[in-house]
């Protein structure tokens, strides 16, 4: 039973990470190969705040989010003005830099030996509620002006700007929000695992988060959720297949992109509106698939 609870906790945490990347990559078309750095920053901020400075859990969580957002601002401000490749490449480097920083500050952070003895404070209820809130946040954002603006920027930045969208400001908002979710999730991860180390999240983990979104479909939060839950719970349940699952995931992605670019779930969303349409068949005809 404990085992399954653990699987659920890990899966939910990773699903939160998938959602943070969904906003950034799925909706806005910005790719961060260093997104794991924000998870690491969140985890270490929370871990250090409690073990080294004796701060209470709730304050450590807030601190983790703040530090993560500051990191996002440092990376985002110079790069989000430039063409997207710069953002991608610089975030990739950022991930490596955070790792180097942790190794360098070994006296404080424990370096390669990792940081142990973090209080076990994030149990299933806290993680479940947090994930649920994040799901609702992201779903709400997608429905309204914020999400529409993201998609407009993704599809045609120049036209979006000419239609009155402050593209740079919006990208910063998206990135900071995404960094905040990632570092909050990272802090929960630290409080859940009690031990963290600099290699917690390398570029590959960040890449997986992106890839999962493309399997689910960039226009579907539901797709990102289901694919994320499926992928991470599968990996936890069948540990022996841990490495091979990535090879399978990779091949699956390429097949999806070549044959069904809109992703497995297209733009389908599991929502009250969809449920209603199940009961009244009539309007479903007019809906665009």
């Amino acid at each position: 039973m404990v085992f399954y609870a653990k699987v659920l906790e890990t899966t939910l945490l990773f699903t939160m990470f998938v959602l943070s990347v969904y906003m950034l990559s799925g909706l806005t078309g910005l790719f961060s190969l260093g997104h794991g750095a924000f998870i690491t920053i969140g985890a270490y901020t929370a871990g250090l705040a409690t073990t080294r400075f004796g701060l209470p859990i709730w304050l450590s969580l807030i601190l983790a989010v703040v530090v993560g957002m500051i990191g996002g601002l440092i990376i985002g401000a110079p790069t989000l003005k430039l063409r997207r490749d710069y953002f991608l490449l610089v975030t990739f480097g950022f991930g490596e830099m955070v790792r180097a920083l942790l190794l360098w500050t070994a006296q404080l952070t424990g370096g390669a030996m990792g940081l142990a003895g973090i209080p076990y404070a994030a149990e299933l209820p806290l993680i479940a509620v947090s994930t649920l809130v994040v799901v609702l946040f992201v779903a709400n954002l997608k429905k309204t002006a914020f999400g529409r603006t993201c998609i407009a920027i993704r599809d045609d930045e120049l036209a979006a700007q000419a239609m009155g969208v402050n593209v740079y400001a919006h990208k910063i908002k998206v990135f900071l929000l995404s960094a905040a979710i990632a570092s909050y999730g990272g802090a929960l991860l630290a409080f859940n695992m009690s031990f963290i180390e600099p290699n917690l999240f390398n570029w590959l983990e960040s890449a997986k988060l992106i890839v999962i979104i493309f399997v689910g479909g960039i226009n579907s939060v539901t797709g990102a959720l289901i694919t994320g839950i499926f992928y991470y719970s599968f990996g936890e349940l069948f540990r022996f297949a841990h490495v091979w699952r990535d090879v399978i995931l990779g091949l699956l992605v390429i097949l999806v992109i070549v044959f069904r670019a809109q992703g497995v779930f297209g733009s389908w969303e599991f929502s009250p509106a969809w449920i209603r349409s199940r009961f009244h068949r009539r309007p479903a005809r007019n809906q665009e698939a």
């Binding site: 529409r148 603006t149 998609i151 407009a152 599809d155 045609d156 036209a159 239609m163 226009n219």
Partner: peptide, 14 residues
Amino acid sequence: RLFDGLSVVDNVKI
């Protein structure tokens, strides 16, 4: 230059 990921009505809203 329309936004292909948005519906017709959402294109107008932008």
